[in-house]
Simulated assay, not measured.
Amino acid sequence: MYKVYGSVTSRAFRVLWLLEELGEPYEFIKAGPRSDAVTALNPSGKIPVLQVGDDIIPDSTAIMTYLADKHGKFTYPAGSVARAQQDALTHAVLDELDAVLWTAARHGFILPEEQRVPAVKPSLMWEFARNLDRLADRMVGPFLQGEQMTIADIIATHCLNWAIGAKFPVENEKLSDYAKSMRARDAFKRVRALDGD
């Protein structure tokens, strides 16, 4: 059985959501970043961490790629053009949404106070809005890549939810509607319910 270390309010949400979509059994071990349980598995202390038997996989995107490839769902076949396009979308979401939100978080509360530059937030908000519009222009169907949901959709939706919590406006109507439909998925709701356990 898979073991997922992390918290629902972190990028572990992405991994848990994919596991719920896949219908694969897992054990969720609630653990914060740099906790003893996490640091014992991942010296950086970052979450999420996936334990598969004696093997450890850190990083939400690496974990999701492994799970999608292993189970042959929520991904296109390796070596296909569609997979390369999926990977391009995934990296675009990570570079243009996730990284912007992470930078804002670092300067908002993660870095030591003397290292924070709060004045960067308006610039990051502008960049985020511009990048949302670019992503919306790339959407070709009900999901980012058309008719098939992939791990890129899970990462994008997680970022859109993160943006709301971080008070980054999501004013692109196409992506706002897309996020609402993704949040309506049963697997998404099951993971969100884990936060109350």
Rank of each mutant, 00 (worst) to 15 (best):
Pro25Ser: 10
Pro58Glu: 06
Ala179Leu: 06
Thr39Arg: 10
Ala184Met: 03
Arg116Trp: 05
Ser7Pro: 13
Ala78Trp: 15
Pro112Ser: 00
Ala119Gly: 12
Ile110Ala: 15
Asn42Trp: 13
Arg106Tyr: 15
Arg183Pro: 01
Met139Thr: 06
Thr9Asp: 14
Leu18Gln: 06
Gly53Met: 10
Arg192Asn: 15
Ala193Lys: 04
Asp95Leu: 06
Lys174Glu: 02
Leu132Asp: 08
Ile47Leu: 11
His91Met: 09
Glu24Tyr: 09
Ala105Lys: 12
Ser10Cys: 06
Gly6Met: 00
Arg183Asp: 10
Arg185His: 05
Val117Asp: 10
Asp177Lys: 03
Lys121Leu: 13
Thr9Lys: 10
Ile29His: 13
Gln145Cys: 01
Arg11Gly: 08
Phe168Val: 02
Ala193Asn: 09
Ala84Gln: 10
Lys70Met: 11
Arg116Gln: 14
Ser181Arg: 06
His107Thr: 11
Pro77Leu: 07
Arg134Tyr: 13
Arg185Asp: 02
Trp17Cys: 04
His71Gly: 07
Pro25Gln: 08
Ala62Val: 10
Phe13Met: 12
Asp153Phe: 02
Ala105Glu: 15
Tyr5Asp: 12
Gln51Glu: 15
Pro122Cys: 02
Glu147Thr: 03
Ala78Pro: 15
Arg83Lys: 02
Pro77Cys: 04
Ile151Ser: 02
Met182Arg: 11
Tyr66His: 13
Asn42Val: 10
Ala136Asp: 01
Asp95Arg: 04
Ile151Val: 07
